[in-house]
Amino acid sequence: MTRINLTVDGAKVADDVEPRMLLVQYLREKLGKTGTVIGCDTSNCGACTVHLDGTSVKSCNVLAVQADGATVTTIEGLAATYDGGELHPVQESFRECHGLQCGFCTPGMIMQSVALLNDNPTPTEQEIRVGLEGNLCRCTGYHNIVKAVQHASGQASEMHA
């Protein structure tokens, strides 16, 4: 067992974990943060995306022990990082633009979209598509997801579904 100390969604946590425990397992199984989901076994889908010290990572491809000393934000704590309401503006945009169908990819899509907008507040459609290339969606065909990110960035969408 290895002792880890980190901040998750604003709360300080400390735990003894097996070194082989993945960050996503730690979040879901130890902290009960099941908002972050697991969609694949190959680190391709991006459903498990969270922010680790401010940048997006696939939490199925990080060990919990590697997050020792770090600050983690999951979809469950995202709204609280923005003090304007119950939802983060990107969450609101996904709702407004119908950026989801089954919703399984959505936690990861939203976390990656927030990271993308932090780096580039007014991305072009192409930059949005490239920025989300590590996130797979089986339902939407991506158009409304791209629209949601454009909407969140305050840019009128050129596409109307």
Partner: peptide
């Protein structure tokens, strides 16, 4: 190379 999340790590 890869995608943004992978490039961060």
């Amino acid at each position: 190379l890869a995608d943004e999340q992978i490039r961060h790590r």
